[in-house]
């Protein structure tokens, strides 16, 4: 085993993992608050990838060439509009079903996911899209053929992901809104009795989760440059795996799970087999759910009789 390849895969895994972590936050927050998987979350991420490409193209029409300015505007634009998508999803596919059977919101969320995929496919075309490379250059450590390469784009992803998580953590831990979110997560009925507008809090959680997915979408678009309307599905399931791995309902768990999953997937495809890397992630999901459903940081669920 070559050390430099190993380190290179770890770096790639860290980058991939921070993206998974960002998306996993959306799953974990929604699950924490309403106890359901938001099946449309992967597609929110997919929509945000399109939005960021559209924003980049839009700015180039106005002849703006400064990369930091473009990235800043693209981030704001994408996060705002994606958050609107998150809000609408909750409003259309979840809120009317509150108090319904357990299966109903699951099915409507899958319907929403199908709708979003097809909607983007119909309006933007089925072909793979791309954006120009905005963050050029890289850092090489090592000599000759044995080197580890970190592109600036990768560095940017990790730093922005950390930054995004810090902001989210601040919102959840320090603001009044965050306190209401945490209260609603612990006991929705009681929070409602204490005058918290739980419907609004649930909407907020969808919006925050979508904003994180939007951040992930922008970062992935900037780094890899290509995407299509189908990316939300596989990435969504993997991000969910990350959320479960870290312990669903736990924010630090989502990030940790994302990084662990990203690194192990990266090592798997680097040293064992690239074709089966998705199979590896799915198998990991199944194994965690069988043997440790509470994940790394999650609390075990006590069944209510």
């Amino acid at each position: 085993m070559d050390l430099h390849i190993f380190i290179q895969q770890l770096v790639n895994g860290l980058v991939l993992g921070s993206v998974y972590g960002l998306i996993a936050i959306g799953y974990t927050m929604v699950y924490g608050i309403i106890g359901m998987i938001n099946f449309a979350h992967g597609d929110v991420y997919m929509v945000s990838a399109y939005l960021s490409a559209i924003a980049i193209a839009l700015l180039s029409i106005f002849g703006i060439a400064s990369a930091p300015f473009i990235i800043f505007v693209v981030l704001i634009f994408t996060i705002i509009i994606t958050s609107c998508y998150g809000w609408t999803i909750e409003r259309v596919a979840y809120r009317p079903l509150r108090g319904s059977t357990r299966l109903a919101p699951l099915i409507s969320a899958i319907g929403m996911s199908l709708f979003l995929q097809n909607y983007v496919q119909l309006s933007q075309g089925a072909s793979t899209q791309g954006v120009p490379n905005l963050i050029k250059g890289n850092l090489r450590i090592g000599e000759g053929n044995d080197f580890v390469q970190i592109t600036y784009a990768q560095g940017f992803i990790v730093i922005s992901a950390i930054f995004g998580m810090l902001i989210l953590n601040f919102i959840i831990q320090k603001t009044s809104m965050g306190r209401q979110c945490r209260a609603t997560q612990q006991d929705r009925t009681m929070a409602g009795l204490l005058g918290i507008n739980t419907d609004r809090i649930i909407s907020t959680v969808f919006v925050l989760g979508s904003a994180m997915a939007a951040l992930a979408g922008v970062l992935v678009t900037l780094n890899y440059g290509t995407f299509d309307f189908y990316i939300g599905f596989i990435t969504g399931v993997k991000a969910f795996t990350a959320a479960v791995l870290g312990g669903i309902g736990s924010l630090p768990g989502a990030i940790l799970g994302g990084i662990v999953l990203g690194m192990s997937e990266s090592l798997f495809s680097g040293f064992i087999n690239t074709d089966y890397k998705d199979v590896f992630a799915f198998c990991l999901l199944v194994l965690i759910l069988i043997f440790r459903p509470s994940g790394i940081l999650g609390k075990p669920e006590v069944e209510k009789v």
Binding site: V92, L97, A104, I107, S108, G111, F115, Q117, N118, L122
Partner: peptide, 17 residues
């Protein structure tokens, strides 16, 4: 087709689960 299926699934769940 798929668009319609998506809408149908949501509408059915709201209207007649």
């Amino acid at each position: 087709r798929v668009l319609m299926f998506g809408i149908l699934m949501i509408v059915m769940m709201i209207w007649r689960p």
